[in-house]
Design a protein around this nucleic acid. Structure first.
Lengths: 142, 142
DNA sequence: GTAATTGCAAATACTTTGCCACGTA
DNA sequence: TACGTGGCAAAGTATTTGCAATTAC
């Protein structure tokens, strides 16, 4: 049974001209289920995808999805890039432990939208979005 | 003539037990002069450092400086890591063009401190800091 | 049938380390 | 003198691409 968020995301993929492949479905379900940004290696190695397809396929899929605004590539701090599902109307900031590397979404509302509007108005940048991350040592690591 | 910010930074390095080498000075001056985050490759290839020392040296220097809180390693979005000078009492957010990759510091005051305090209080994370980046297509690229 | 997608393997890019020589304190 | 630093070269990790085979539409 495919969750409705994923079903809607698949619709967006189809609308963008992408083909509905098994790999696409499993990738979207995996990202959705994890609820947090994941690396290429994590995704390609996850149960749903490990036997399903090659890492290069996951890489190219992520690339395509990112170019259509369906996933977003995040910087974070590791050497590897992280990818997260973009759901219209939702935004997340992250709290990352500098010790163990754990990543969790910040629950509080994001305080940056006002400034983002100002930047949009003052600089003429288009397609503006932001990334906000908090780094620190979590209680377990401290 | 070494700028006073750099001189103070060198003092902090000495206090942290680092030796005052030519490479250290040139690295700090370069970072200070550029006024924006730079990659290892940019630093190692810059006029002040190119003939001065090996890329591995710059790498280890940055590593040491980061571990003492004198520079900070930033995620941003490129494959390469970026490094920026940390000056006590100063904080920068960045505006990055997704087309040409240009990076500039945002002038407006950072709207995140309040939320950072809440997170500090509510989660028990230690040594908290944040990174805020805006991404968009600059007027030239659009 | 046709163009998008995939697998496998090879090529890149950037980072990180080993080891011994060197320079600062 | 002693230990932090530096150079050079090699290894490591993550990403990216070429090309022929496959699959969705």
């Amino acid at each position: 049974m495919i969750p409705s968020v994923v079903r809607q995301t698949i619709d967006r993929c189809r609308a963008a001209g992408l083909r509905r492949t098994k790999a696409l479905e499993e990738l979207l379900v995996t990202l959705h289920e994890s609820g947090r940004p994941m690396t290429l290696a994590e995704l390609a190695g996850s149960p749903r995808l490990a036997d399903q397809c090659d890492k290069a396929t996951v890489f190219r899929l992520l690339q395509r999805l990112a170019s259509h605004g369906i996933v977003r590539r995040l910087g974070l701090h590791e050497r590897a890039a992280y990818f997260t599902l973009l759901v219209p109307g939702k935004h997340s900031d992250y709290l990352i432990c500098t010790g163990c590397g754990s990543i969790e979404a910040v629950q509080a509302p994001c305080p940056v939208h006002q400034l983002e509007e100002e930047i949009r108005a003052n600089t003429g940048y288009r397609n503006l979005y932001h990334e906000l991350e908090f780094f620190g040592l979590c209680p377990q690591c401290a």
